[in-house]
Nucleic acid binder design. Structure first.
Lengths: 100, 100
DNA sequence: GTTACATTTGACAAATATTGTCAAAAAGAA
DNA sequence: TTCTTTTTGACAATATTTGTCAAATGTAAC
């Protein structure tokens, strides 16, 4: 699975844009965008949607990548992570279709 | 699905323990434990394992509840939450059995 | 209804984590 | 080299989390 950062960098380079160009539009330093692309920092949700606009990437796809990384970050190193994910999934499905 | 807080409160009351007793063992104010039990605050991971010990609850089960709530907290209000969960699950399964 | 405790509430403080800047170092391409 | 881009790491600003405390509320016995 390609990481969110990889998707962003790939696309930025394909469009011939420099960190300088894109980070200016995001209103942050190039250092942060560099780190986001290499997975050293997490982007904010707002940055992700802006990046989708700037780089003409499908917003939903990018958001799904981003959110799933956020989820995985929460359960990193947890032996019970997979089971927690399954419980979360059941809970959300139950809540969405029924009740609450 | 019963919440983590509900499980804790139920068990504490069944054992005839007061907030005062349990919060002292956790080294926090009763106010926080009260909030945790009612879902107004999240516990820390350490508090969860201590609570399992104090209340003689199955540690794994309680942790799974706790982690799944943490996950759901991250994607609350997100339309793409379910899809993100599925991607996360696939990623973790892939990583656990193969690669990396 | 008053006393004695248990729990809850909310304002605030402390601690921790996140998000950012900046300047210097490293990497690339003439 | 020189010019430009990217990366690195120390640090600052900000936001979030975690906690205390005191007062308010709830509960039960008397």
């Amino acid at each position: 699975m390609r990481t969110t950062g990889e998707i962003i960098r790939e696309r930025r380079e394909k469009k011939g844009l420099l960190l300088r160009h894109v980070s200016a539009q995001l209103d942050i330093d190039t250092a942060i965008l560099s780190k986001i692309e290499r997975g050293e920092r997490k982007a904010t949700r707002e940055q992700i949607t802006k990046l989708a606009d700037i780089l003409e990437l499908d917003k939903e796809t990018l958001l799904i990548h981003y959110l799933s990384e956020k989820i995985l970050y929460e359960i990193q190193d947890e032996d019970l992570g997979i089971q927690a994910l399954k419980v979360a999934e059941k809970t959300i499905k139950y809540g969405v279709t029924k009740h609450k």
